[in-house]
């Protein structure tokens, strides 16, 4: 028996976690709602009598009619402040608290899943969801944009004109930035999820935190705090749409998010590794 038991299958839990995540109707409902944003936007612009002028409406909206690829970018801009973080709040806030409220947490732990392993797997699946969420907006944006507006040339913020291939790369970069933006939030959500046995409560708390951070980011009196807010660089992807690309805010954001992941990951570990599971 010992010889046989020495072979372990540690990755199985992650596979199972992803299966559970993507088999839930809730996950698909959220992805469908995200996909509806670029579709709605593109259809409305297409149906309106005159194209939006420069600087009108959401950023880059005027570019949409020139190059369908910019539908994806504009949709990402629209969903980043609220819609996208809400879905991430649902998934990350539910990570541990949801298992606790179902009662499955105790069975995972006596399986034994291992507390650290479970925490890591839960975070990995939240990251997978962030990727799926921004990927959904991006892909639907591309598809509907190409269908309604074609794939002509587009003008960057620096005035340069780029072709289709370059536009795909630029929108991919924006998608990467938005995904990275959600990673810190997911870590905060994971931590909050270890504090309670009520999944809905944890989700709501994460969502409220997102909004509070953005409100604080608007108050000039708190300028000293702004660089430390996880929402600080959320809309800072204009630099990715210049020629040449300015990487400063992209990299600053990546560093900030990494710091949030490390800090709240450590807090989640500290809390969860000693927590009494009484649900």
């Amino acid at each position: 028996m010992p010889g046989e038991k020495s072979r372990t299958h540690g990755g199985a839990l992650l596979v199972s976690e992803l299966r559970v995540l993507f088999r839930r109707r809730r996950t698909w409902a959220m992805l469908a709602a995200l996909a509806s944003i670029p579709v709605l936007m593109a259809v409305v612009v297409r149906l309106s009598a005159e194209p939006p002028g420069p600087g009108e409406g959401p950023p880059f909206l005027d570019q949409v009619t020139n190059n369908g690829m910019f539908v994806a970018v504009t949709a990402l801009v629209l969903t980043t402040p609220l819609f996208l973080p809400l879905t991430v709040a649902v998934v990350s806030g539910d990570a541990i608290a949801g298992e606790a409220s179902l009662g499955t947490l105790r069975y995972l732990l006596v399986a034994p899943a291992g507390r650290v392993r479970l925490l890591v797997v839960k975070y990995a699946s939240a990251v997978a969801f962030c990727l799926a969420a921004s990927g959904t907006v991006l892909l639907t944006g591309w598809a509907i944009g190409a269908a309604l507006f074609g794939t002509g040339e587009a003008t960057l913020l620096s005035g340069d004109t780029i072709g289709v291939g370059d536009a795909v790369v630029r929108s991919l970069l924006v998608g990467a930035h938005v995904t990275i933006c959600m990673l810190g939030l997911a870590a905060v959500g994971l931590f909050i999820s270890t504090l309670t046995d009520a999944g809905v409560g944890a989700m709501a708390a994460v969502a409220v935190l997102t909004i509070v951070a953005q409100v604080l980011g608007q108050l000039d009196q708190l300028a000293w705090l702004h660089p430390w807010l996880f929402t600080h660089h959320w809309l800072a992807f204009a630099d990715l749409l210049r020629e040449p690309i300015v990487w400063t805010s992209f990299m600053q954001n990546a560093l900030l998010q990494a710091a949030y992941v490390a800090f709240f990951g450590a807090l989640a570990y500290g809390r969860f590794s000693t927590k009494d599971v009484l649900s």
């Binding site: 299958h9 995972l108 399986a111 291992g114």
Partner: peptide
């Protein structure tokens, strides 16, 4: 799912 949680 529960079986997958047991790495053995």
């Amino acid at each position: 799912r529960l079986d997958a949680a047991d790495r053995h």
